[in-house]
Design a protein around this nucleic acid. Structure first.
Lengths: 226, 226
DNA sequence: GCAAATTAATGATTTATTCAAG
DNA sequence: CTTGAATAAATCATTAATTTGC
C-alpha cells in the first residue's frame, strides 16, 4: 500500500517530495555527491530511497522547471509580437533604442550555441514569475549610457565591409531601418544616412511557426504545445 | 556579476537564451527586421542586447543546427553502409559461421525492433537496504527468450560500464561510497565485478526521424573547418 | 461505481554539448 | 586537435490521473 511497495521505480512519499521541493525552492539545483548523500540519508527516514533517486529528481526537476519557464516566456513573447504587429499596422514604425555597447567583435559574437551560461543560475528565476505584464524597454538606461548612436553606426558601416553578402543582402533596407533608430546627435560618424527606407514592408511573419521543429511526435508528451 | 558586465561581446542571459531557443524550436529561423526588432525589444528586458545579436544568434544557430544534422545523417549513412557491408560479408560466409548467426540475429532484432537500445535495470550493485525490489534481469527473459545466457551475459557485462559512464562517473568514489552502503547480504551479484566490458552493440541506430530545419537547401560550402 | 482506455507526470536513461586540460 | 568531466537536452518507460462506456 505504501507508495512504491513493489514498484520498479522510486515513488517519492509526500514527505520526501515536500522536502525535496523545499530544497529546490531554497536554491538547491545540482547537489554534489556529499549533498546527495546527506539528503538521501535524511529522506530515507520517510521511505525507501537511493542516492540516484535524489540525483535524478534534481536533474529532472531543474530541467522541467526550465522548460516550463521557457514556454511561458515564449508565450509571452508571442503575445507581444502579436501586439506589436497590430500596432505596426497603424504606426508603421516604432523607434526602439535598446542597450548598446561598443562592438567590433560582433562578428564572432552571439551564438554560443545553446545553453552555455546556464551554470549557476540557481534562483535567477524564482519560478513564480508574475510577469504577466509585457516588459518592454526597461534595461536601456542601464548600460548604454555612453555610446548610443555611435555603435549603431559602426554596426551599420562595418557589416557591408565584411559581411555584405551574408547578411546585408538579406536585410537590405529592412535592417537599415532597424538600425536607424539612434539619436541624431552622433558625435563622430553620423551626418549621412542616405536612404530612408522607412517604408514599411509586409511583415508576412514568415516562419514564425513553421511547425517543423524537432517534433518527434511521440504518442503523447509535447503534444499540446504546452 | 551581471552577465556581460564589461565584456566585449554580447553574453545572453539565461532568459534571453531560453526565449531564443524556444522561438527557434517553434520554427523561427530567419526573422526579418521587424521581427528582430520585436524580439530585441522583448529580450532587452532581461539584459543588454541589440538587434544584431538576435540576428547573429539565429544565423549561427541555424547554421550549427544544419551542421549537426548533416553530421548525424552522415554518420547514420556510414553506419548503414557498414551494416550492409557486414551483412553481405556474412551472407557470403554464412557457410562457415553458424554460431555467429545467433549473435547477428540478436543484433539485428535489437537494432530494428526497438529504438531504445536496452531498458533493463542495472544495479548489480544495488544499494539501499530496503531497495530489494530492483528488477534486475527481468528484461532478459523478456527480450530474448531464445538467447538467454548469451544476453544475460552481455547485460551483466555491459551494465556496470554503462552505469558508471552515465552517472556514477559523476560522483566517482563519492558515489561509490554512497552506493556501497547496501547491506552485505546482496544475494546475486555484488561479489563479482565484471572484469571486462566488451562493447556489445553500439548499434542504437534508433530512428531517422529528424527535424527538418526549414530545409531549403544546404549549401555544401561553408565548411568552416570546425 | 468501476474498470478499460487515454492522457498527463515524472522517474530513469541515453545522447549531445560545452568547457577545460593535455 | 583530442579527450574527459560535467551537465543539459532528448528520449524512454512506468505510474498516476482522468476520461469514457457500461
Amino acid at each position: 500500500m505504501s507508495p512504491a511497495a513493489n514498484s520498479s521505480r522510486w515513488c517519492p512519499t509526500p514527505e520526501q517530495l515536500m522536502i525535496l521541493e523545499e530544497m529546490y525552492r531554497a536554491g538547491t539545483r545540482t547537489p554534489n555527491a556529499s549533498q546527495i548523500q546527506q539528503i538521501t540519508a535524511h529522506l530515507s527516514f520517510y521511505g525507501k530511497i537511493e542516492g540516484k533517486n535524489v540525483f535524478y529528481w534534481f536533474q529532472n526537476h531543474k530541467a522541467r522547471d526550465r522548460q516550463k519557464l521557457r514556454r511561458k516566456l515564449y508565450k509571452q513573447l508571442q503575445q507581444q509580437q502579436l501586439y506589436h504587429h497590430q500596432q505596426q499596422q497603424q504606426q508603421q514604425q516604432q523607434l526602439m533604442i535598446n542597450s548598446i555597447q561598443q562592438n567590433h567583435h560582433f562578428l564572432t559574437s552571439a551564438s554560443s550555441s545553446s545553453s552555455s551560461s546556464f551554470h549557476q543560475q540557481l534562483s535567477c528565476y524564482s519560478s513564480s514569475p508574475s510577469a504577466g505584464s509585457i516588459p518592454q524597454v526597461q534595461a536601456v538606461g542601464d548600460h548604454a549610457s555612453t555610446h548610443h548612436q555611435l555603435m549603431s553606426y559602426s554596426w551599420k558601416m562595418e557589416i557591408p565591409l565584411e559581411k555584405e553578402n551574408s547578411m546585408m543582402r538579406l536585410y537590405d533596407r529592412d535592417w537599415t531601418m532597424m538600425v536607424d533608430v539612434g539619436p541624431p546627435n552622433s558625435p563622430c560618424c553620423n551626418n549621412y544616412k542616405p536612404l530612408k527606407t522607412l517604408e514599411l514592408f509586409p511583415i508576412t511573419a514568415t516562419n514564425l511557426k513553421e511547425e517543423c521543429t524537432t517534433s518527434k511526435h511521440v504518442p503523447h508528451s509535447t503534444s499540446t504545445t504546452n
